[in-house]
Design a protein around this nucleic acid. Sequence first.
DNA 1: CTGAAAGCGCTTACAG
DNA 2: CTGAAAGCGCTTACAG
Lengths: 350, 350
Amino acid sequence: MSVNGNVEFPTRTRPTMREVAALSGTSLKTVSRVMNNEAGVTPALVAKVKQAALTLNYQPNFTASSLRRNDGKTNTIGVLLEDIANPFSAALHRAIEEVARARGVAVFAGSVDEDESREQELAAAFISRRVDGLIIVPAGHDQSYLKIEKQSGTPMVFVDRPPALLDADSVLTANFEGAKAGVEHLINHGHRRIAYLGDLETITTAVDRFSGYKDALDRAGIAFDESIVQMNLRASVDAEHVTSKILASPNPPTAIFASQNLISVGVMQALHRFGLQYSVALVGFDDVPMVELIEPGLTALVQNISGLGKAAAEMLFARIDGTNAATEHRVLDVVLRERGSGEIPGPHEK
Amino acid sequence: MSVNGNVEFPTRTRPTMREVAALSGTSLKTVSRVMNNEAGVTPALVAKVKQAALTLNYQPNFTASSLRRNDGKTNTIGVLLEDIANPFSAALHRAIEEVARARGVAVFAGSVDEDESREQELAAAFISRRVDGLIIVPAGHDQSYLKIEKQSGTPMVFVDRPPALLDADSVLTANFEGAKAGVEHLINHGHRRIAYLGDLETITTAVDRFSGYKDALDRAGIAFDESIVQMNLRASVDAEHVTSKILASPNPPTAIFASQNLISVGVMQALHRFGLQYSVALVGFDDVPMVELIEPGLTALVQNISGLGKAAAEMLFARIDGTNAATEHRVLDVVLRERGSGEIPGPHEK
DNA sequence: CTGAAAGCGCTTACAG
DNA sequence: CTGAAAGCGCTTACAG
């Protein structure tokens, strides 16, 4: 007589195929046939079984079926991202979901948070649930712990960052070439004194971008000057402080290269505060959200994030489908989008 | 003799507990005991089993174990989001992950994309994989399809939007009160002609915010004027167009209320283009990314997104743990953050 | 076309 | 303390 929903609708046990069989007066195997739309069951029986399933509210247990099924597939993949909440990870995740959805594959996701042990824990959690494959943005610098799993037949594709001490497929962005092109863009606009603000040196993409910077300077015959270079920046406030310090130094740069979007934001904030946003040039790696609202617009090297996710997912599913080709390493191009901040002329303009 | 990794390391079948038992000269049951760290196994046997497991690279199959286990738990939950890639969904997802991670629970996630059938497909996909619970941001307006599942014992919590035609827990933002407070803020700053730009009328949160707007006008004795009200805006460009049109009209508003962040962006773009960003006041629901870079700063009603996710996850796990309390509906407050755009004085300033 | 038996990889319930 | 048998919900392999 209670009005509480929990009491009115007590928990019932979920019906099984066996119970559907009993109600429909047929066998377990026939119910299985009907549920899987297998041909060769009398229409009359099909109707009876479906009616019984409906009456009992039967819901198939996909997990149980995959245990016995020959292919052993769970139609599930695991995705290890840097941080689910950051825009890069979220866009990657979305692109992967798109491909998985088309195949009826469910997606586990988790944040690695630049933590090596978290990476291993997440991988283990997904493996113990027998995912059909893994897509990984690694944090650690040794993925040999996945060797056994790979040999056991679980395909895996690395995105954004390459695997280390493990032979596996990867899809990366042209970080070296992109950063190099960005710095050359500044040089072509008359700059020779170009500061570099970079991310953690433990992140391979950060190292590659930094190499691109140095290579561009080298080719232009510009000496590397560590007084206007700062790596290991994480938050935008850090970048803001460093930018302020560099701008106030005796021999300030006429241009700045920011190795990722949070750093670009910090640089822009410092430039705005000094009122230098129209005098000091800026090129950044990665777009900044709401970039349209900022003046001058940020000239940025734009990655094809959804392209990375799509390619990774397609490579993974090709492996899951049994492709046994040699390990593949794909690299996606970066596009330089001119919006104003990178076209501010320098003192050496021709 | 091939150097191809795929040939050097052929796919092996994954070892089972039975094989570990055989190698260690013990029984399946004893291996199970060791793997689950059950007390009461001779240290010598434990060592032998662990050695064998290591030799064979045994990896436990959590899915298989949960099939037979009494609690039946898969230590897995499913999360249905609006769109994994949007910042709101991503922040929600992250907060949920945090709680799940602490319990060793893996998280399935998917995008509903404001599509009713997609919502049902995702729910079915997660249910067929026997998740322990569901956290749902619904798109449709009838969740009765989940009634059976709920009765079968799968806990579910709705976030951001309430369930319809289904009695279930929910965690919502104070949309009505928040919008009302935002409009009252504008009124207090001397505005009486306040435009309203809103989201899809099919979204309950959009309707609630609109009601808050109307209620604030009512209480201030301001007549509702549909010529400066526009609902069903989705992209920021749409909001930009409508704002431009309204600003160019004979009797333009002195203030604008934007019902969500994409709309705020469109309004800001239009105001900037007209050079009216310091003359027309603006209050928006939800923060805008990189808001620090915009002048004047956006005065916004800020939701506690991670609070929503955390509360939803905690309520879900309480149910999973067996709590059988009455359905709970929690509402989280919104904070008005003054940053400049909402404090621009209107003609009726006292 | 239909179904009884065996088995997927584990845990449970029970016996020794 | 250890293990043989049964069973979780399904599919496979085979017989009729």
